[in-house]
Every structure is written in structure tokens, then in C-alpha cells.
Write a protein that binds this DNA or RNA. Sequence first.
DNA 1: ACCCAGGAAATTC
DNA 2: GAATTTCATGGG
Length: 278
Amino acid sequence: MIFTYDKNAGAMILPADDFDIEQTFECGQSFRWNNDGTGAYTGIVGDKCLKLTCRENKVFVYCNEKDFEDIWKSYFDLELDYCEIKKQLRIIHPVMEKACDFAPGIRILRQDAWEAMISFIISQNNNIKRIKGIVESLCTNFGDYRDGVGYLFPTAERLACLSEDDLAVIKSGFRAKYILDASRKVHSGEIKLQSVSRMPIDQAREMLMQIKGVGPKVAECILLYGMHRLECFPLDVWMKRAMQTYFPDNSPQDFGEYAGIAQQYIFHYSRMNPDELT
DNA sequence: ACCCAGGAAATTC
DNA sequence: GAATTTCATGGG
């Protein structure tokens, strides 16, 4: 992919063929990117705030060249050839053609593992709008505030010392005790995310499920979205319905080494076309 | 009042 | 062990 820096705009410019910001931010993989109403998206990642826009088949990433090279090129997974991956996925099954064509600009973000862990613990038995609200409340109540950036995602160290009563303000319900267990195990070093991200996949799943509130589905989400293990294939209520409707004779392994990307196309297509599901 | 939401733990059979 | 119930909260 070709990147150019536009000095006047103060932005990196890249082709939008395999990167649609609306599809990428609205497909349910992340919870802290927001549309400002004009089509521009703003998000906070780590201790950086970033804005993106799109016009004339170009994505504008408003940052300097150094941050783009150091942070955003990786975060948006721009070194991976999604055009080629979609070619492979389309061959697997006719429905994959429809799913890929429906939102061909989806990319899997390289989110922070800790943030993904807490976010997907919150996601269980919940809906996306409310998940976003709880995550944002967690940040404004317990995250550091930076001028010109906003509230950062709170650290494990900060959350580890809280009580369930302290967390009541974010109204996460029964998930509060899960958030605290995750915080304490990460802060104490009992679970080392850096280490888990490099483990063989079954061992990594096993480690993550040591945490209260992390079962098979949430572990799969942490691995896919927070550790970029693209072979992972989270099966939530939507994906289970999609599998029995479109792929009754397939299993997750049939989607290959990029099953997680296939999953995201299927998930988004299914959620946007619920009438097709049985 | 009832059902569901990017599930998992606790309980019961 | 497999099937069912419970767990907070908000929206339709």
C-alpha cells in the first residue's frame, strides 16, 4: 500500500480500496472510535488521539509522519495485504463473496491487549451501544486525563485496587467482579499479556480462561482483536446463527489461517442483514 | 410485563 | 457430564 504525506492537510493519505473507516469502526470490533456526525472518526489509542476522514476514495490520517510509521501503520494493519486475503476467502464459499463485497473495507485493528480484554469482558450478554457507554464511563471515571487527547483507558494497576462498590458508578452489573479479577491477575503478573500473545494458541486460550468472566468466546476476542491472532474465530450469538444459516457443513477451521478476518466479514454482514438468518 | 443483547458461572438434572 | 438458570442493566 502506498502512503503519502500531505503537508497542507497535515495528514497521511492512503488509498481507501481496502480500508473504509466507517466499515472498520462500525463493524463491532472496537468500542472507542466515534463518528463526529460529519463522517470523520476520532479515537483514543494508548496516549494518542487520532482523527480520520475519507473523501474521493482516499483516507486522511491526521498525524505526523513519525507517528504514522511508529503507531498507526501497525494499528490499522496496513502491512497486511487484505486484497489478497479477500481473494483467498472468496474461494472458500459463495457466501464469503457476498460478505466480502458487502464491507470490503473492514480491517482488523491491532488493539491493545489489556483494553481488548476488559472491553470484551464487558461485552458478554450485552449490546454494542451499551458496551461503548460502559467502556467510556470506565475511562472517564478511572482513566488519566490528557490535555488535547481526552481520557485514556485505565491501567490494570489503577483498577486492581478498586472494590465492586467503587466500580458501581459505571453500571457494568455482574461484570464488575470479572473486571476486578482480570485487573488483579494482570497487575500481579499472574497473567502476562505480552507472554500470552506469543503462546501456542491452545495454551493461550487456557491462560486467558483462568480469569473469571473469560470463557471461550471472550478469550477468542482477546486473542483476535488484542493479540492479532488472525486464526481465531469468536462464536457469539450472531456468528452461531450465521454458521447454521450459511455454513451448516463448515467449521471454523475451514476458513484457514485468516479465519478471524472471515469471521469479521460474516459477523458484520449478518448483523446488517438479520432478516436472512433463521 | 416480556424479551434480547458480540457469555460465563452456578446450579440442577 | 450435559442441560438449564442466574447474573445487572437498558432498550425495544
